[in-house]
Design a protein around this nucleic acid. Structure first.
Lengths: 138, 138
DNA sequence: GTGCTTGCAAATCGTTTGCAATAGC
DNA sequence: GCTATTGCAAACGATTTGCAAGCAC
């Protein structure tokens, strides 16, 4: 039940009214920091919530993003991924296993760019693409 | 005709057999450095090439990417963009006008990351999101 | 009972695929 | 004539939309 407390606190902190579905999605994000896709979340939760629909997961994640509880990542053309870690950090995506790793956090200086006068920066995404050691040794 | 020479040279340099369509797409990319989407390329070329199909533009850009002549950018969820500038550089995308700007080039040191031993880096994409001055003053 | 949430079915949109017609050597 | 390229039409897959049923206060 500790898990539920945790996700409820997280929802409350972002002014999101809880529901069974929202708590389940939030709980999954907190305990599976794998930058999941909508489909991965659905596949994980569906067995224990047979009536759950993918539309609800889309609704839920749109709400979470709007409330600043999660960050949407557009790391590849295929599908969006969602990150519960909203602090500024860089990602590494393995081309083979498609797993996403957090690699380092960004400091303020990264937000200062040569032509800062021309643009108002809201966010920054840094993503490295390559092969992870696990895949390379297979 | 200078334009055609330029795109033919570009194609030849990347071992791409020229065709009317390929030269037209390459010529567009060289002279319109706006990181266009497939649709933008199609809309621009279609009037002067009525039989041109979108499939051909898809085929053409896949080939260009495979031959290293252009880089595919996945800056947002919506659609892929293509960049004739294959050197390592960062982008700024305006949320309002959706225009993409090149902002600075990356140096070698950006490719050295804390956990370099765990990953083999192939490429790096840095993208800033925000509002450009032109949009802000409107 | 009112308003928000859920979830089905259908629509949408970018992209891919199958394949027949066409062009270039 | 052979091979690669083109382009139509259909398929596909992620996401969005319309809307009726369900839930919570």
């Amino acid at each position: 039940m500790e898990a539920l407390f945790e996700s409820h606190k997280y929802l409350k902190d972002h002014s999101i009214k809880p529901s069974v579905q929202r708590s389940a999605v939030m709980n999954f994000l907190i305990h599976n920091r794998i930058h999941p896709t909508i489909d991965e979340i659905f596949t994980a939760l569906s067995p224990s919530m047979p009536t759950l629909s993918k539309t609800t997961i889309y609704n839920t994640l749109h709400l979470f993003v709007k409330q600043g509880a999660v960050r949407m990542l557009t790391l590849d053309e295929k599908n969006a991924r969602y990150d519960i870690n909203t602090s500024a950090h860089a990602h590494f995506i393995c081309k083979r296993c498609e797993k996403v790793h957090d690699i380092f956090s960004l400091d303020e200086s990264m937000y200062v760019i040569p032509c800062s006068n021309d643009f108002e920066i809201e966010s920054l995404e840094i993503s490295y693409v390559g092969t992870c050691n696990t895949c390379k040794s297979n």
